[in-house]
């Protein structure tokens, strides 16, 4: 009798867990990822850059940065923010998925930084 009860309990538990886990597959329908990007989906990257600006300001206020360096880095961060914000135009949103937008945002920031490095390196090469 005890064995039968255990068997029934295990069967019920398996059924409940199985139905719960497999429900999204059985319900069907939404099988792909149709989400499109919000026009301001770049906010994640932008928030990070804004936080960096705040950190920079605090460092400057605490005399950890010279005025020249502060101005230079502030300009660079502003430029990066502009890059991130620029593609987020409403007409582009429909063709973008969130992942592609994120990748694009990261690429833009990376490209801006790499451009800066190469621009610093080029005069050095030329002079050498």
């Amino acid at each position: 009798m005890e064995q039968v009860l255990i068997l029934i309990s295990v069967g019920l538990l398996t059924l409940v867990v199985g139905l719960y886990v497999l429900y999204p597959l059985m319900a069907g329908g939404d099988s792909s990822e149709p989400d499109t990007a919000d026009p301001v989906v770049f906010d994640f990257e932008r928030d990070q850059l804004l936080q960096e600006i705040h950190d920079l300001e605090l460092d400057h206020a605490m005399v950890k940065l010279s005025d020249e360096e502060y101005a230079e880095r502030l300009d660079a961060l502003r430029e990066e923010i502009d890059h991130v914000s620029a593609p987020a135009q409403p007409h582009q949103a429909e063709s973008l998925t969130p992942d592609s937008v994120r990748s694009r945002a990261e690429e833009l920031v990376r490209a801006a930084r790499l451009r800066k490095i190469s621009s610093r390196e080029s005069p050095a090469k030329e002079s050498s």
Binding site: V17, V21, L22, Y23, P24, L25, G28, S31, S32, E33
Partner: peptide, 16 residues
Amino acid sequence: KNTRDYIESSYRGVWA
């Protein structure tokens, strides 16, 4: 495959 139903099912698997 970027399929929402399998992703949702895996999330339910975690909770289960």
